[in-house]
């Protein structure tokens, strides 16, 4: 509940309409969580499409999933879990005012995210090489099912939207790195990096579901 104490001296990052820094921090984080809800539901739409098409064509999903490389998918899962760890470590370091270590962890996170994208790039290129495109450009005939393109349409939509989120995440984390370098975030004010962390963990969670649903159908 709101404005308990009367605002006294204003501190550096406190906006005028908040009573104190705690209220502001809580509000930002709460806002971020609500935003994550919208993200979950947006991806959720694709999961619904996935579930319905899988219930219609279980055989297709089995056949088409054989084309995906489990090793690469698993590697990417590990990479993303690693990046989740590094960003959690970055936030911890910044909370403890070890800004330098924090920056290193943020850079490591960007590195892992980039690794994820590079692996994804090779996966996509491999598919494109075979003529496995989303939609009407699809020209691969190695799968004996006339709905094969449908699986890959869903696959590309899901991983593509996820990939866009990874790229946005890289941008956000890069921005946080710059902020940290300028000394704008520290133990007294680390709201943006906390929220970036939440966003990044959500990207990880979504991949945690995408991996078994797309790659591990047996």
């Amino acid at each position: 509940m709101g404005n308990h104490s009367v605002a006294t001296g204003k501190k550096s990052h406190l906006q005028h309409h908040f009573v104190d820094e705690d209220q502001q921090f809580e509000s930002s984080k709460f806002g971020m969580w609500i935003f994550l809800v919208t993200e979950v539901l947006m991806f959720g739409g694709l999961f619904v499409a996935y579930i319905i098409y899988r219930s219609w064509h279980p055989d297709l999903f089995y056949m088409a999933a054989q084309e995906l490389d489990v090793a690469l998918g698993a590697t990417n899962t590990v990479v993303l879990i690693g990046s989740s760890l590094t960003i959690a470590l970055a936030i911890r370091a910044i909370q403890l005012d070890k800004i330098k270590a924090g920056i290193n962890y943020l850079v490591a996170t960007i590195g892992l995210a980039a690794t994820f994208m590079i692996i994804k790039y090779f996966e996509y290129m491999d598919k494109f090489g075979k003529g496995i495109y989303p939609g009407s450009a699809y020209s691969y005939d190695g799968i004996g099912h006339d709905m094969a393109v449908n699986f890959f349409s869903i696959y590309y939509m899901m991983t593509g939207l996820h990939g866009i989120h990874v790229v946005i995440g890289i941008g956000l984390i890069g921005w946080m790195t710059i902020k940290a370098k300028k000394g704008l975030i520290h133990s007294g004010y680390y709201t943006p990096v906390e929220n970036t962390g939440l966003f990044w963990h959500l990207v990880d969670i979504i991949w945690i579901f995408l991996f078994p649903l797309l790659y591990l159908i047996d």
Partner: peptide
């Protein structure tokens, strides 16, 4: 939109 641009067929 993807249906129109790429023809993904959902």
């Amino acid at each position: 939109a993807m249906e129109r641009i790429l023809g993904i067929g959902i």
